[in-house]
Design a protein around this nucleic acid. Structure first.
Length: 429
RNA sequence: UCCUCGGUAGCUCAAUUGGCAGAGCGAUCGGCUGUUAACCGAUAGGUUGCUGGUUCGAGUCCAGCCCGAGGAGCCA
């Protein structure tokens, strides 16, 4: 008999089916035992009656997370937690588990993180990982549908991309190399080769960050578009985020339900355009809200919170002072003190989702900027080549995978939005 | 790196002014004819993070260290 997955049960009511999975939880009441099974796709209740003595005996000896194959009749039953249950006729115990460490009760974050390899089996964590899958698959589909080429940037890099954030050093046959903090510069090269490109890959930041919004190893989806200006860039970002939201609300409603996500605020985001304000307007708004900033100051967590609260939807903040952003950003033709960059701030306190900008295409200006930012020229020679040979206006952005997952899923902490998070002083398991 | 809080059974937590180390969950055994983190009874389970100090006596007070959590800065 071909096994079916728990999510397929509604299509097999009244049939004898085979489910392969693990025991999530067990209850018993005299002549009946209730087994809560999980198979990776979902949870479902199975029952064993005492009249089936062979199966009943096996069920009595089962402990949490024992692996098994069960055969039985699938049916609808209002008393079952998911509305469906399986009356077991036969068992095959694959492996009997003993003393599973994670009990069906509350645990502290330290304990759960030490057992992350097992924690991901619990319903909410598994749901988060399915949401993550859908977000990543959505990104791939979105770009593929628009004719973007999926490409790659190197993880081992010879120099800092932006020269600012702390990097993880790696010994590279005696030379100093670093784990990449962004694939952007390389994407600019592939965009000049392929036109429209994107990649999804890890980024590494050795910041001593210790907050729920940061990981030392996280995933970014970065896109780079030849002949795109700043406005087209923001438009594409908005379309991507809305596509992901719409897809998740449709395809992963069950997971969002498991996660107890209030989807009304997400639905609302779909119904209207994202807010767009300039850095100068943001400063005015923040001053009105009692959080004044000096010109040139970057936003902190409380400022992002206030902006998100004010708009109740994602908000682009564009045209920041050039000095507070990266060297490669195109100056605003209206005011060269500003750059054609935009950050997309998520609502509900989830922080910065996207950072993007139009890139400098003029060779002389880029050379000048390297000097202003006191960056060495040699490591960037190849990057300058892109401005020597067929330079075009181009733009791009990077969207944080975990932050997108956290926002859509309503997760409190980024560490739950990646299978094995890497955090300050935590690299086990 | 800075600020705040914490570390007691496998887990989540109690323990009065410094005076016999406790409960629930989990585990094990038994009971219960539809459970919803089922319920009822029993059993096992401890170097109170580490080192030193004060004291007749320290889980409790003091000092140092280690580890964890939350927040800040930085960013995606």
């Amino acid at each position: 008999m071909q096994p079916i997955r728990i999510t397929e049960i509604p299509q097999h009511l009244g049939e004898e089916v085979l489910i392969q999975g693990w025991l999530y939880h067990k209850r018993s009441s005299g002549a009946i035992q209730f087994l809560l099974l999980r198979d990776g796709s979902g949870l479902m209740q199975a029952i064993v009656l005492k009249s089936n003595s062979a199966a009943f005996q096996v069920a009595e000896g089962l402990a949490q997370e024992s692996s098994l194959r069960v055969w039985g009749q699938a049916r609808a039953d209002k008393r079952a937690p998911t509305g469906y249950e399986l009356e077991i006729s036969r068992f095959e115990l694959v492996q009997l588990a003993h003393d599973y460490p994670i009990a069906p009760k509350e645990h502290g974050p330290g304990f759960l993180m030490d057992h992350r390899h097992l924690w991901i089996r619990s319903p909410k964590q598994a749901a988060l990982l399915r949401v993550r899958h859908e977000v990543l698959q959505g990104m791939r589909d979105f770009f593929h549908q628009r004719g973007f080429i999926a490409t790659e940037s190197p993880i081992l890099t010879p120099a800092a991309v932006e020269g600012t954030t702390t990097l993880f050093p790696v010994d590279y046959f005696g030379d100093q190399a670093y784990l990449s903090q962004s694939g952007q510069l390389y994407l600019e090269a592939t965009a000049a080769a392929l036109g429209l490109v994107y990649w999804i890959g890890p980024a590494f930041r050795a910041e001593q960050s210790k907050t729920r919004k940061h990981l030392t190893e996280f995933w970014m989806c970065e896109a780079e578009m030849a002949f795109y200006d700043h406005q087209m860039n923001m438009q594409l970002q908005e379309e991507l985020v809305k596509y992901l939201l719409e897809r998740l609300l449709k395809q992963r409603a069950a997971e969002l339900e498991t996660l107890e996500r209030n989807t009304a605020s997400l639905q609302k985001v779909l119904s209207e355009p994202f807010a767009r304000i300039t850095y100068a307007e943001a400063l005015e708004l923040l001053a009105e809200q009692g959080l004044p900033l000096e010109w040139g100051d970057d936003f902190g967590a409380p400022h992002e919170e206030v902006l998100g609260q004010h708009f109740q939807r994602p908000v682009f903040i564009e045209k920041m002072p050039a000095a507070m952003k990266a060297f490669y950003m195109e100056p605003d033709p209206q005011n060269p003190e500003l750059v054609l960059a935009a950050d997309l701030i998520a609502p509900e306190g989830y922080g910065e989702l996207i950072g993007g900008s139009q890139r400098i295409s003029d060779l002389e200006m880029l050379e000048r900027k390297l000097q202003e930012f006191q960056l060495p020229r040699e490591p960037y020679e190849w990057y300058l080549d892109l401005r020597r040979y067929g330079s075009v206006p181009h733009s791009g952005f990077g969207i944080g995978v975990e932050r997108t997952v956290a926002w859509i899923a309503g997760a409190k902490h980024l560490r739950e939005c990646i299978p094995f998070p890497r955090q300050l002083h935590r690299i086990y398991p």
